[in-house]
Design a protein around this nucleic acid. Sequence first.
DNA 1: ATGCATCCTGTAGTCGCTATAGGTTCAAGC
DNA 2: GCTTGAACCTATAGCGACTACAGGATGCAT
Lengths: 128, 128
Amino acid sequence: MHAIGEASRLSGVSVETIRYYEREGVIGTAERTASGRRVYTDAAVGELRFIRRCRDLGFPLQVARKLYSLSSENTADCGEVRAFGVSQLAEVKTKIVELRKLASALEELTANCAEGSTNCPMLDQLRS
Amino acid sequence: MHAIGEASRLSGVSVETIRYYEREGVIGTAERTASGRRVYTDAAVGELRFIRRCRDLGFPLQVARKLYSLSSENTADCGEVRAFGVSQLAEVKTKIVELRKLASALEELTANCAEGSTNCPMLDQLRS
DNA sequence: ATGCATCCTGTAGTCGCTATAGGTTCAAGC
DNA sequence: GCTTGAACCTATAGCGACTACAGGATGCAT
């Protein structure tokens, strides 16, 4: 059994975020001590770590939650899980493409800017 | 002179967002007709378009505003403008690197998932 | 005169936290 | 037993950049 601070350290989820997750129903409500402090089992810490890993992969909280509930069933359909992963991957790839365009636009814009000049090609572009 | 809907069409900024920009001081307060409707000059539409272009390039609103005010000075220092662009470019590049890592992680995770299987390597990874 | 598009204000919701205020509880050292 | 300080508690507000109502006023064409 772990206090919230320890659960935070073990899972990599901040204390405030753990409480937020509980409020929002992302994770189950933690047990409490007689004085009202939250207490976490190893399984609960595992749940937090699972959610954090999903978040690190860019899954929204709702999807993280769904994946965790799939993970808790012993009849989890791998195909359904895969679908979330594939869709997330598609989104990430789309974002990369967008950001690449953005990067080259910024490269072009800044290319001809010079220190001290009061005639700025970047501003000209933004204005036109 | 243009009504807000027309200004929106001309600038590519939604009506709600234009009002939001005014509320937040991103743009100046628009003139009003006798009945209280906002009215936009071509210059005001240009301002909106400028802001939208900055946003499209990923600049935060504050920076967009700053760039617009630089653009309005006739003594704008091109070096200062360039600094914003370069810093934005660096951020975009950092994000691309992160997203690439994410994409390859997702590719690995989903690679061994198969339709219909109840033994899911992606969930196993997320759990472990 | 009617109807519909457009406009107005004000407020709340989105997402995923983060921060603050103001309080209680626990554990260690003296 | 007492004090101190860390860790905990709740409740609320703020972030960024919108978006989405609700409930009403206005403008314009038929």
